[in-house]
Design a protein around this nucleic acid. Sequence first.
RNA 1: GGAGAGAUAGCGAAGUGGUUAAACGCGGCAGACUGUAAAUCUGCUCCUUCGGGUUCAGUGGUUCAAAUCCACUUCUCUCCA
Length: 365
Amino acid sequence: MRYELIKKDGNARLGRISINDSVFETPIFMPVGTQATVKMLSPEELIDAKSDIILSNTYHLWLRPGEEIVYKAGGLHKFMNYNKPILTDSGGYQVFSLAKPKDISEEGVKFKSHIDGSELFLSPEKSIEIQNKLGADIIMSFDECAPYPSTYEYMKESVERTLRWAERGKKVHNNKQALFGIVQGGEYEDLRKYSAIKTVEMDFDGYSIGGTSVGESKETMYKMIDYAIPYLPEDKTRYLMGVGDPIDILEAVERGIDIFDCVLPTRIARHGNALTRNGKINLRNLKYKEDFSSIEEDCDCYACKNYSKAYIRHLIMSKETLGGRLISIHNIRFLTRLMEDIRKSIKEDRFIEFKTEFLKNINEV
RNA sequence: GGAGAGAUAGCGAAGUGGUUAAACGCGGCAGACUGUAAAUCUGCUCCUUCGGGUUCAGUGGUUCAAAUCCACUUCUCUCCA
């Protein structure tokens, strides 16, 4: 993997990532396809929505179908018929969402399978080995995404452990895939700094900021970024994990983030919510019953070119899956288009103007 | 014509004397969702000027008290002629 910093506008960065046979510009957004599929969408639909990279998940694929199956299929790309870059998360987020504090030890994390309740154990070595088998282009260190709030003492311990886990993971890594280290530290400035410095010392292909979007306020999240960014090298990619609210993306780009991922656009789509330049709209609302205009008149996505809000509302109300699919397509295209506009504005040295205008439109509704 | 069963909020359906403005489900209205245990979850859903008001087919009655008991009326369903 190669990262080139093309230009900066303030701290906002326009970059280019070349990996395997793919090239794409950053800042970029990755739709989340946890179980080797972005829920409800085919790879063709993702590509139509101008998505250039997706995220998938180690934990879920380890449990089902198992990394060996994916390996036998020829890797994740072949298995799911998606030939653009894929990044796999390490299972670190599942430490936050599925494991209990008592299940976390120096060796690794004990999980109760969400599928059948059986006992599982994931270690940093195991996570990397699974990710090597899955064969994504970019893989992540196994970290602990600690809950918010956590005490300083706990967070310090957790940060140290995540650093040791990163070291252990690196040792077993096959080096054929790009490997990112993850900065943790919660809302504590010195821990973020320490985590960033120590992680960078290990020399990864890119650096993630984790432990965000776990219930903290937006201001706190932005501080978490501010605390870590100064210690991340300019010539490496920075990835803010789990963030995808358009406002957060703008705030993070302004601070120097290059990559984002988030379940939000696809999850809220399945729940009937569409992203628009004027803010989020809930298509279940009565006011759209006879609204025969598209979600966004100027959007070039498949949903907006062909279907009305009234029709999509009908589909959602009737629990027809096409409704969730159409909004998912729109929401992903909304974010890929937002990223296109962000890159263009950085290129033209008017990122802040773009951001201000964008926020103004949202606030007006 | 005869025998029986039943009518409960938008719909379905509990409740068969008092802690019942009435369970629950559906429908409807709104909200939440940020490295996906999520096509999920939460709230509201008789009226209200938030003090209260009016309900369980209708009317009348019994009772301190009725959706619940009695009488009649209307309607629905099942079976027998």
